[in-house]
Computed example of a mutant assay.
Amino acid sequence: MQPGSNHGSFDPTADFQGARKETRDAYARIRSMVACNVFPPGMQIQAKALAEKLGISSTPAREALIRLSVEGWIVSVPNKGFFTRPLRTEDLMARYEFAFMLLKYSIENSAKAFSSDRLQHPPELEYGADGKVGPVAEEVRIAQATFLEQLYERIASLSGNEIAVSAIRKFILETRYIRLLDLEDEAVLRELAAGTAELARLLTLGRKEDAIAIIRDQMEKIRNRMGDLVKEAVARSLSSL
């Protein structure tokens, strides 16, 4: 299963309904590939070759690439074509900083009470006699990441500000690959599972400041690991060529 294949309630084509179905489908597939770091940073994406790989015609592939370049997911260079953006530590850290400010704002200015109803709660981690987590399947990491992402989206919706919700959804998609890569570390997975469950509990109790403190801690820790995560992500992309 590719990272990003399960995105909860986030529909990546929700704002693209005026386009042809073939273009919408191509857009969703290609954007997921870009978000999941399938293409190495700085790589040229040729519409014809990509269309052949996806089993579609060149026109919807090119239309999707134009849309993605307008939205900033990829770069369009005149007379050269489309290229993936460099994967940069500072860019990802800035996204996390911005997302924290949005979530903090949403909690502090919540127009309604928080509820975790209908969120996809992940299964509890299984610990052995030595206190360590047993072998973790990719589906478990995805379940933990998805719960956190849905929780962040639910938090953003508390303010009633649809722009904030849209921004958090974009943050979730832009950072999912790094998030799943981070969760390959057992200690990180354990800490996130406990912290996210506690975050949901505190929000339900209306303990806003304590909830904000957990989000701040979660984001500061992944930002501290970001340099190493980016190096690993780039290395994996290059090795897949």
Rank of each mutant, 00 (worst) to 15 (best):
R201G: 00
C36I: 02
R169F: 00
L151P: 04
P122M: 07
F147N: 04
G131N: 03
T23C: 07
F10R: 09
Y152D: 01
T196C: 15
G42V: 04
R190G: 00
F39P: 07
G18N: 11
I214S: 08
S116Y: 03
D210T: 02
E149Q: 08
G42P: 06
E153Y: 04
M219V: 01
G8C: 04
E232N: 11
T84A: 07
L158S: 05
S166A: 15
R190M: 07
P123D: 08
R225M: 12
R223G: 02
Q218G: 05
F16N: 07
L199I: 09
F100Q: 07
I212K: 06
E138I: 02
N79H: 15
A194C: 05
E97G: 14
E126S: 01
G160D: 09
D11F: 03
L192P: 00
R20P: 02
A200M: 07
R141T: 10
E186W: 04
I74Y: 09
E138T: 04
E220H: 08
E149L: 00
R62F: 08
V38E: 13
I107S: 08
I172F: 00
M101S: 15
T204W: 03
K170F: 05
A187C: 00
Q46E: 13
D217G: 03
A51N: 06
E184F: 06
S240C: 08
H121N: 09
V70K: 13
G160I: 08
L205R: 11
E232I: 14
A111K: 15
A49E: 15
G160T: 09
E232A: 15
T146W: 02
A19C: 09
E174L: 06
D182L: 10
A111N: 11
K112Y: 07
E191S: 09
P78K: 10
A129C: 01
A64R: 11
A187L: 11
R201N: 05
S58K: 15
N109C: 12
V34R: 04
L183C: 05
E198D: 13
P60S: 13
I56M: 14
T13S: 14
L87R: 12
D130C: 01
F98N: 12
R207I: 05
I178K: 05
E108S: 11
Q144W: 00
K231I: 12
R223M: 14
L189S: 02
S166N: 11
P78G: 03
T175S: 12
R29D: 11
A233G: 06
R62E: 15
L199R: 06
R62C: 10
N109Q: 13
M93G: 08
K48E: 15
I56N: 05
S159M: 05
S5E: 13
T89M: 12
T89L: 10
A211Q: 04
S110D: 07
L102Y: 02
M1S: 14
Q44K: 15
L238Q: 14
S58W: 08
E90Y: 14
I74M: 06
A64C: 11
L241P: 06
A211Y: 04
L102P: 00
E124R: 02
L173V: 12
S116F: 04
D182M: 07
D15K: 07
I74C: 06
P86L: 10
L205P: 01
M219A: 02
V188G: 00
L241Y: 13
T13M: 06
L125I: 01
S159I: 05
